[in-house]
Design a protein around this nucleic acid. Sequence first.
DNA 1: TTATTTGCAAATACTTTGCATGTGC
DNA 2: GCACATGCAAAGTATTTGCAAATAA
Lengths: 142, 142
Amino acid sequence: MKMRRHTRQRQVILEELRKAPNHPTAAELFGLVKVQVPRISLGTVYRNLEQLCEDGTIRKVPGTGNETRYDGDLTEHWHLRCRECGHIHDVHGPVSVETAGKTGLRLGWVALEQRLELIGLCPDCQTSGVAAKSEIKQEPYS
Amino acid sequence: MKMRRHTRQRQVILEELRKAPNHPTAAELFGLVKVQVPRISLGTVYRNLEQLCEDGTIRKVPGTGNETRYDGDLTEHWHLRCRECGHIHDVHGPVSVETAGKTGLRLGWVALEQRLELIGLCPDCQTSGVAAKSEIKQEPYS
DNA sequence: TTATTTGCAAATACTTTGCATGTGC
DNA sequence: GCACATGCAAAGTATTTGCAAATAA
């Protein structure tokens, strides 16, 4: 079992991600964090984001383009994503396909495609016990 | 206005994508297509997949990892995605958050996260008329 | 003390692009 | 014929990794 330490780098990365209104990329976050931790490197940002995802503290939002974006908000919400500029707008509240379209319209969006996914563990990966292996001991961040 | 020509390369790429059961990546598709069009290059595969997306003939499925996958099935369905092995399982039928969880369970999946997105045009991009610019004239594929 | 984390740089992975040549219409 | 598409190779991005030095507990 792996022990996770608290570091200033990870702390600031998480704070900046939670403050950011727009699902930043690793590179964007790197810029924000560098203000407070000037000697941080991009590799460290990637490593910490990966860890925070593993711990369930944050989430990846697959980008429309080819960069991953990160979401520090774990409350119930869904996304309106612009096909052209990549902008992602959060809509808080219950997740429902039935009302999502209407909400989008009300906010002035033209919605072209609905995407619903459940992310989980397929039967095979449950059997091979991948989930158990990833056990990590840590004190939670604020 | 751009004229799109029929080429054997694009035809075979589309056929193979529609035959594939598993939302292949560009590289996987490249391997499949090469059987029939040995001299095809990976760049051509990427260019054609991009065009087919623009035309609305196929869709991108953002990968959990950092490769884009492609979906040649435009009928109503949603995805069960395995967090570990990346496998994507199609579930055909109405898209509904309410019943998705139950369906996942019934299929033996442990679902950890629901993701709902509407992909469209934000108010700004509608105003700047990006949508109109992408007009393309073409005869449809089979 | 010691296992984890960092900074740096190099490596890898994926995708896009420039250009001469080929091809559909 | 000519605009569009291809093959190839090189370039561009995004992300991961090896390793010695730094650091949290």
